[in-house]
């Protein structure tokens, strides 16, 4: 589904991603973890097209997308959720999702009220229902809470039926109950969609991921199944050595 080879990204002299390889199979949930500043968000941005890679190549479904602009990659099936909430504040939740759904259809329509487009609204309602946000359908996105924004972003990504979903810390700021519901949802989604999951919560990572890639200082230091990664000496050293909040959780699962 996704194949990344030798990917590098520098900011001035600072190397944020160095020579990274990553493979995501259809239906796989592939977690990317690492300490703060490891380069996880940078990697997602380069894959999504918001940042241009300095070196390396990115293949989506066998097609080279390394130089494609963001919107072309989205049309090729990449769905995205940002680490820092990114919604359309002056539209309602339903409209946010409908606009996302509309991207796959025809948007060069100038006269009919888009709000009255039954087909789009129905798809948007279904997507909102999937993430448990139906009750907020007519709330302005700009006035919703943080946890709801996370759900809304997922609804926006899902409605386009992507083949690859890029999620940057989807559960951050969510209540416990909501994140449990989200984990269930991700499991369902992964039956049809490959997922790249950046996540700090190790409970989420170890319960969901088929494989895990560990980044530290922009480099890939490990990649494998959860048990393999857990047993990896280098990984333990990075996490325990850094004294990161994730360390206890890692130990717990070990």
């Amino acid at each position: 589904m996704l194949r990344v080879r030798g990917l590098s990204k520098r900011f001035g002299g600072f190397v944020s991603n160095a020579d990274i390889d990553l493979d995501i199979e259809p239906g796989e949930i592939h977690a990317v973890i690492g300490p703060n500043g490891a380069g996880k968000t940078t990697l997602v941005n380069v894959i999504a097209g918001d940042l241009r890679a300095d070196a390396g190549e990115i293949l989506l479904d066998g097609h080279d997308v390394t130089t494609l602009p963001t919107h072309r990659r989205a049309r090729a099936g990449m769905g995205r959720m940002f680490q820092i909430t990114s919604v359309l504040p002056s539209f309602t939740a339903l409209e946010n999702v409908a606009i996302a759904a509309q991207a796959r259809g025809r948007s060069f329509r100038f006269w009919h009220r888009a709000n009255a487009d039954r087909d789009l609204n129905q798809r948007a309602e279904m997507s909102l229902a999937r993430v448990g946000l139906s009750h907020q359908a007519s709330a302005l996105a700009g006035e919703m809470g943080h946890g709801e924004h996370r759900q809304l972003e997922i609804a926006m990504a899902l409605v386009a039926e992507p083949c690859l979903l890029l999620l940057d810390e989807p559960t951050s700021g969510m209540s416990g109950a909501d994140s449990v519901a989200l984990i269930d949802l991700l499991r369902t989604i992964s039956e049809t969609t490959a997922i790249l999951l950046v996540e700090h919560d190790m409970d989420v990572v170890f319960s969901l991921a088929d494989r895990i890639t560990v980044l530290a200082s922009g480099r890939r230091i490990a990649c494998g199944t959860p048990p393999e990664v857990r047993a990896d000496a280098l990984v333990q050293q990075v996490y325990l050595g850094a004294g990161a909040t994730a360390a206890p959780a890692m130990a717990e699962h070990a």
């Binding site: 999504a48 097209g49 918001d50 602009p69 963001t70 919107h71 989205a74 049309r75 995205r80 940002f82 990114s86 919604v87 359309l88 504040p89 002056s90 539209f91 409209e95 606009i99 996302a100 509309q102 991207a103 796959r104 025809r106 948007s107 060069f108 329509r109 100038f110 006269w111 009919h112 009220r113 888009a114 709000n115 487009d117 926006m156 386009a160």
Partner: peptide
């Protein structure tokens, strides 16, 4: 009508959050 149309709300969406609209597939 234009502002409330499919085209119009994409235009406003781009005004609100260009990056988000790109990631949804809009140029």
């Amino acid at each position: 009508r234009l502002v409330a149309s499919h085209f119009g709300r994409v235009l406003v969406g781009i005004r609100d959050n260009e990056r988000r609209m790109r990631s949804l597939g809009y140029n």
